[in-house]
Design a binder for these strands. Structure first.
Length: 295
DNA sequence: CCACTAACCTGTAGGC
DNA sequence: TGCCTACAGGTTAGTG
């Protein structure tokens, strides 16, 4: 689920409730998610104060007063939410019935303004994970990442450098987190549609003979930025189960031009095309065969 | 270097 | 109602 706009939405929802909060206790309801929880996670968290709630690509980065940083990835179905305030004991859902069975990690926190509450991490498919670092920039999850797509480091010149001679389809190239970090299946499809580029064209075909970006690559950079900004503004996309930290959903799914719209008319003005679905790298790709072209 | 598949795991939607 | 299949926002390892 969560691509950059959804993770940013979660981050913004968590920040006012977590920053300055003290972690009183931590309960792990199982030993692992995608990977085992770090052996020292509970002791590293308990008694510390949260100093920051950040994000890099699709990773949440929670800074602690000890100087350490919690790195959290939501996988496909991970979510953070708060239990109602004023509860004294953390919920141990696995021991009871009638309660969510995918609540794997619970932090009992005390915030100077908001008081006590429980932060709950739930994740039905358990593709997410939590890790702990002294210096998060050394984490193998972050070291190889490409630039943030909303930063100035992401531009047509750097994309041209990355795509020069590259034979992978542009769709696969944009999903490669080493090229640009934070895009997923939804926003790649939407950005390519806005830039009028077919997802099947080779990445290298967007670069000219001098290694400089063709105009279509400039359009693509703008489209990526635009679609991400719009999505963040409306709280991301809720397809099945995405919820922000306050329990609300996103609204960008109503603005999808192509994603999950196979058979529907292309929304591009004057375009007569019908949205098609193909499979690339084992994943669905949605596009309009009429207004998306080979540059 | 690149493409494709399977794997991790659970839930849900659709066909019969 | 139930059973079965296909598929889902991500990432990684293995194979050809």
């Amino acid at each position: 689920m969560p691509e950059l706009p959804e993770v940013e939405t979660v981050r913004r929802g968590l920040e006012p409730w977590l920053e300055q909060a003290r972690i009183e206790s931590v309960t792990l309801n199982r030993a692992n998610l995608r990977f085992p929880f770090p052996a020292d996670l509970v002791s590293a968290l308990e008694g510390k104060t949260i100093t920051s709630v950040g994000r890099r690509a699709k990773y949440l980065l929670i800074g602690l007063s000890s100087g350490q940083t919690v790195l959290s990835h939501l996988g496909m179905t991970g979510s953070y939410r708060f239990a109602e305030h004023g509860i004294d004991k953390p919920p141990r859902y696995y021991e009871t019935e009638n309660v969510p069975k995918h609540d794997h990690m619970v932090w009992t926190i005390d915030h100077p303004e908001h008081g006590k509450s429980h932060l709950i991490y739930a994740d039905p498919r358990r593709f997410g994970f939590v890790d702990l670092y002294d210096k998060p920039e050394d984490s193998p999850y972050l070291t190889g990442l490409g630039p943030e797509p909303l930063s100035n480091a992401f531009n047509a010149d750097m994309l041209a450098e990355a795509f020069k001679g590259k034979k992978a389809p542009i769709k696969a190239a944009l999903l490669d987190q080493r090229v640009v970090a934070g895009l997923g299946n939804i926003y790649v499809a939407e950005a390519l549609h806005r830039a009028h580029i077919l997802p099947t064209v080779l990445a290298g075909s967007l670069v000219n003979a001098k290694g400089k970006p063709k105009p279509a690559l400039e359009d693509l950079v703008s489209a990526v930025r635009q679609v991400l900004v719009e999505a963040i503004e409306v709280g991301g996309s809720t397809l099945r189960d995405f919820r922000n930290a306050e329990g609300g959903n996103g609204y960008f799914q109503h603005r999808f031009a192509v994603y999950d719209r196979e058979g529907e008319p292309c929304p591009t003005p004057m375009c007569t095309g019908t949205i098609q679905r193909i499979v690339q790298s084992g994943r669905s790709t949605f596009f309009c065969p009429v207004c998306q072209k080979q540059p």
